[in-house]
Simulated scan of single mutants.
Amino acid sequence: APALHPHDPSHPHHISTDPRRIHLSDSQRGADATAIGNLLLYLPHFLCSAFVMALVSLVFGGLGVIVFVAWLLSGALVFHRPTESAIARRLLRLRYPTAQERARLEPVWREVTARAGVEGRNYELWVEDTDSLNAVAAAGHIVGVTRFAMNQLPNGELAAVLAHELGHHVGGHAWSSLLGYWYALPGRIAWRVLRAVSTAIFKVSRLFSCVGMGIVILVFGSIALATISTLYGLPLLILAMPYALAAVGRRAELRADQHAAALGFAPMLAAVLDKLHQAEQQQQAQAAAIAAYHGNPPPQESPLSKLLSSHPDHYTRLHHLQPYLHPTR
């Protein structure tokens, strides 16, 4: 039998989006354990950034306190709508949907938020002009979806994708990640500058004698030791943070999957995960073919790269969906 068109009402993953009465939940959003854990993991980054900003504020003399306090208060921009829009447009490459796209998205979004008991008008729907299957929960109020997902998925599967992203918002994952990243930024910039300077000095020192190399190592070793002792070893702790943050990110994805499944979208979400898995396998097959053509072994994912992955693997996500796909009687 020929495959059904994604927009065909007879498609098994087509859902009704007729308007109906909405019962709003008392709790519209919050911060679950995953969001709180994410913020706690960013604490060493925040303290290092505070140390950097304290050093920067010394340059401004009497105005240094104002500079430091302004940086502390700048985190409120995460919840500022115009700032959110700028992040969505400049960093995430999202845009407002056209009238035709809005007609496709809004009924599905209305059904998702109705099932969740959430006021859908609190959020903004944006579109990413790519031909990949993806969506994003950005800042505090933005839900972005790719043009491919919007046009090629049955509305039930599109609803599952949107419900997943709504789960990130309801659980506080989106704003906590952005807030943590923002306050970690000064420390990240300082680290990159220090690394660039040390690399340049190391290259210059190689032009001189071993004595010059020893002096460079002694100076930077002293700075590193002073930093570690002053900040109670936080720089060493930060080396493990990418792995811990990735683990929390994977947990956030499972919580968002659970949110979508609890709203009745488990079969649709499983179908979306299968499509993502197939696309990933095709990419791996193409990479292996290119490597074989050049006489190289196929690329293999290292254990460390798996630990740094922000998303669980396909089988883990499907395993956590099983209670919703096959509920016990």
Results as ranks from 00 to 15, higher is better:
residue 37 G to Q: 06
residue 113 T to S: 10
residue 51 F to G: 04
residue 119 E to A: 15
residue 99 A to V: 10
residue 118 V to E: 06
residue 90 R to M: 05
residue 35 A to S: 12
residue 50 A to P: 08
residue 67 V to F: 08
residue 102 R to Q: 15
residue 66 I to N: 08
residue 88 A to R: 01
residue 41 L to C: 12
residue 48 C to P: 02
residue 71 W to C: 00
residue 36 I to P: 05
residue 98 T to A: 04
residue 99 A to W: 04
residue 112 V to G: 07
residue 106 E to Y: 14
residue 36 I to D: 14
residue 43 L to V: 13
residue 94 L to W: 00
residue 54 A to H: 12
residue 44 P to D: 02
residue 93 R to F: 00
residue 48 C to Y: 10
residue 40 L to R: 11
residue 104 R to V: 15
residue 103 A to P: 14
residue 50 A to H: 00
residue 68 F to Q: 00
residue 73 L to E: 08
residue 85 S to K: 14
residue 119 E to N: 15
residue 60 F to V: 00
residue 70 A to N: 01
residue 48 C to E: 11
residue 64 G to K: 03
residue 52 V to I: 15
residue 117 G to I: 04
residue 59 V to Y: 11
residue 69 V to E: 06
residue 99 A to R: 15
residue 108 V to L: 13
residue 98 T to N: 02
residue 89 R to Y: 00
residue 106 E to G: 01
residue 101 E to T: 00
residue 74 S to E: 02
residue 65 V to T: 11
residue 99 A to P: 15
residue 38 N to Y: 13
residue 50 A to T: 02
residue 113 T to N: 07
residue 84 E to N: 13
residue 80 H to S: 10
residue 86 A to L: 13
residue 103 A to K: 15
residue 75 G to D: 07
residue 68 F to L: 10
residue 91 L to I: 08
residue 91 L to G: 06
residue 111 E to L: 05
residue 89 R to K: 14
residue 86 A to K: 13
residue 86 A to D: 10
residue 52 V to C: 13
residue 96 Y to S: 14
residue 107 P to W: 03
residue 65 V to S: 12
residue 61 G to K: 06
residue 81 R to V: 08
residue 94 L to Y: 02
residue 100 Q to E: 13
residue 39 L to A: 09
residue 57 S to T: 03
residue 40 L to C: 05
residue 89 R to A: 02
residue 113 T to I: 09
residue 54 A to L: 13
residue 54 A to F: 08
residue 108 V to D: 03
residue 65 V to D: 09
residue 83 T to H: 14
residue 120 G to L: 08
residue 52 V to K: 07
residue 110 R to S: 12
residue 115 R to F: 13
residue 110 R to G: 11
residue 93 R to A: 00
residue 85 S to Q: 15
residue 47 L to M: 15
residue 66 I to T: 11
residue 37 G to A: 09
residue 41 L to W: 14
residue 101 E to L: 04
residue 90 R to Y: 11
residue 116 A to M: 05
residue 50 A to D: 09
residue 92 L to Q: 06
residue 116 A to D: 11
residue 98 T to D: 04
residue 43 L to A: 14
residue 105 L to A: 03
residue 118 V to C: 10
residue 120 G to S: 05
residue 38 N to T: 14
residue 48 C to Q: 07
residue 67 V to N: 02
residue 85 S to R: 15
residue 73 L to G: 11
residue 119 E to K: 14
residue 59 V to D: 01
residue 56 V to L: 12
residue 93 R to S: 09
residue 43 L to E: 04
residue 57 S to D: 01
residue 50 A to Y: 09
residue 35 A to N: 03
residue 87 I to Q: 00
residue 95 R to I: 01
residue 38 N to P: 06
residue 44 P to N: 07
residue 76 A to E: 01
residue 38 N to S: 14
residue 37 G to H: 05
residue 94 L to K: 00
residue 106 E to C: 11
residue 92 L to Y: 00
residue 88 A to F: 02
residue 94 L to A: 04
residue 62 G to P: 04
residue 59 V to I: 15
residue 73 L to Q: 07
residue 105 L to Q: 06
residue 37 G to V: 07
residue 107 P to F: 09
residue 67 V to P: 01
residue 62 G to C: 03
residue 69 V to P: 06
residue 72 L to R: 00
residue 49 S to N: 00
residue 77 L to T: 03
residue 105 L to P: 01
residue 120 G to A: 09
residue 114 A to E: 06
residue 64 G to P: 01
residue 95 R to N: 05
residue 55 L to R: 09
residue 35 A to L: 12
residue 49 S to P: 02
residue 117 G to V: 05
residue 100 Q to F: 10
